[in-house]
Amino acid sequence: MTLTYYLVLAAILFTIGAVGVLVRRNAIVVFMCVELMLNSVNLTLVTFARATGTIDGQIMAFFVMVVAAAEVVVGLAIIMSIYRTRRSASVDDANLLKY
């Protein structure tokens, strides 16, 4: 029964991450919020692995970590390149493409 708490915590973390992506301006912070969402998924996976008595969930958490690490590499490279050009990592400043 107590497993529910972990699921609720994960859902709250996921929501915080999602809201953060939508309201924060700095690309790095937005990206950190995405990472928070991925990690809340990890918590959910591990909890469900415990709840269903299968080990798959724990293995999947490792996959998610690897993918998240790869995503960090690509993401930071892209954000760095735009920061060097504009001296700003704000997503509001990147506004050349619109309508």
Binding site: M37, L38, S40, V41, T44, L45, V64, V74
Partner: peptide, 21 residues
């Protein structure tokens, strides 16, 4: 593309976790 794509794949992943549960 990166920020929105990562956002969307986080949703996909949460869906995966719920279906697994």
């Amino acid at each position: 593309y990166f920020l929105l794509g990562a956002f969307a794949s986080a949703f996909f992943l949460y869906g995966l976790a719920l279906v697994y549960g």
